[in-house]
Nucleic acid binder design. Structure first.
Length: 405
RNA sequence: GCGUAGGUGGCAGAGCGGUCAAUUGCAUCAGACUGUAAAUCUGACGCCCUAUGGGCUACGGGGGUUCAAAUCCCUCCCUACGCA
């Protein structure tokens, strides 16, 4: 018996895509949906009311960050993540698995969630010994030791610990503790890491079942396997079949660092295997073209820091491509950011005003830009969903991408 | 008028004989950002060119010393403070 219920309403003909509804203990989510990232129990620069008003259905916070600050016990004492941050709708938490990567293998390097395949530093044929390379996360026998980026203190996070923290945070949907690998790793390491992630998934599931007496929380397992077809498929299969006391995962995350070119095939490999009746979350992906790609290939949920992060840096989505509002040409441009946008920012402010706020380093710049970018992405996913329901996904995709590119 | 301290690239402010077209910060101009170490990071920033090199003009104006001056000397102009 799962804490969530997922119902598919319509499928995309000849593809893996689908539109559905995901019911959680704290509200339902129309899928596909974009999950807004609020790592430290706040969507940066926005109040929960603003987050809600721009159309957000669900928010994702982070285990590692909240464990370090203010501490998961504080959040539990506050009554859980929802109460603590005053978010009325459904919530998710990531397990800290991404920090194994971002603070470990990717620390101080030009490697990120999506990498450019042309980067020669990533074309390392075999794993070289960089165990002395400075980083804040080291993988140990049965967990990961993190050196806090806040105060240098060392914390050992095991799958059990991650699940315990997540239960304290109390989101509706949580993730198994995994290892997001660097695409620079060779197949030997990817295989080893995948085995580890699977062992950790099992332990996450065991701990989750032990703690989930009230059945209020759903656990998602995370598929890894780098860019290797065999590993991806193996991962999807073993997570699908993984059970503890007759209970399996309530949904699945698709993790990893991708080259743009590899992403769609990897997602497809995985989603052809994962059980249809359970939701799939493509972790950390969310540029417009990726959303079409993911949805078409059977993804139900996305989360991504891009809309808010690039917003804070002055990049704004428009139907005909992104603009950098700091460019001098916008200083006296009194048009809307995007003529076709119905967000609060576009209804009330001009490019010139945003340009002024950014140049003046005014706090409101971040707020208005974040509202716009999130609205743009959240609405885009909603429109894609509608296009599935209306049987015109392909046309909508072509039209959108032609203008956007 | 006298005394003192100063006048350096858009601004602030280093440099005080060669390695200086000039540290650094800001501003400016671009770029990057995909489970947030991120209101962050990177690059450019006198002019010109056959451009990982070369040429020209530059540290208030003018003159000088020196192989060599933003740096030393003289003089003029200007600014701030103090005293008349």
């Amino acid at each position: 018996m799962s804490a969530i219920k997922f119902k598919i309403e319509k499928r995309l003909k000849g593809k893996l895509g689908r539109a559905g509804v995901l019911e959680t203990p704290n509200g339902s989510i129309q899928t596909p949906a974009f999950v807004v990232v609020g790592t430290k129990a706040t969507v940066k620069a926005l109040t929960p009311e603003q987050v809600k008003d721009l159309g957000t259905q669900v928010v994702l916070a982070n285990t590692y960050h909240l464990y370090l600050q203010p501490g998961d016990e504080i959040v539990a004492e506050a009554g859980g993540l929802r109460k603590f941050m005053n978010w009325q709708g459904p919530t998710m938490t990531d397990s800290g698995g991404f920090q194994v990567f971002s603070l470990g293998a990717a620390y101080g390097k030009e490697i990120s969630k999506v990498v450019k395949i042309t980067d020669p530093s990533l074309m390392i044929p075999e794993r070289f010994d960089d165990s002395d390379a400075p980083c804040l996360a080291k993988i140990g026998q049965d967990g990961v030791s993190f050196k806090s980026h806040l105060d240098g203190s060392v914390h050992y996070i095991t799958p059990e610990k991650s699940i315990q923290i997540q239960h304290n945070l109390g989101a509706d949907m949580i993730f198994a503790f995994d290892e997001c690998t660097s695409p620079a790793e060779d197949i030997r390491y990817q295989t080893e890491a995948l085995d580890r992630t699977h062992r950790w998934a099992k332990r996450s599931l065991e701990e989750h079942i032990r703690l989930n007496k009230e059945n209020k929380i759903a656990l998602f397992g995370i598929v890894q396997g780098g860019r290797e077809e065999d590993l991806r498929k193996k991962s999807a299969k073993s997570l699908s079949e993984m059970e503890v006391n007759g209970e399996g995962f309530d949904g699945f995350g698709i993790g990893g660092s991708f080259a743009k070119e590899d992403m769609s095939t990897a997602v497809k490999w995985v989603n052809e295997i994962l059980p249809e009746e359970k939701p799939r979350h493509l972790l950390g992906i969310g540029e417009p073209e990726d959303l079409f790609m993911g949805i078409e290939n059977g993804v139900d949920l996305f989360d991504c820091v891009a809309p808010t992060r690039i917003a804070r840096n002055g990049s704004l989505y428009t139907g005909i491509g992104n603009i950098n509002i700091l460019n001098s040409k916008f200083i006296s441009d009194f048009s809307k950011i995007d003529e076709d946008c119905h967000c609060y920012t576009c209804q009330n402010y001009t490019r010139a005003y945003l340009a002024h706020l950014f140049r003046g380093k005014e706090i409101l710049a971040n707020t208005l830009a974040s509202i716009h970018n999130l609205y743009f992405i959240v609405s885009l996913v909603k429109k894609i969903r509608q296009s599935i329901l209306d049987d015109n996904f392909a046309d909508f995709k072509t039209d959108f991408l032609m203008r956007y590119k």
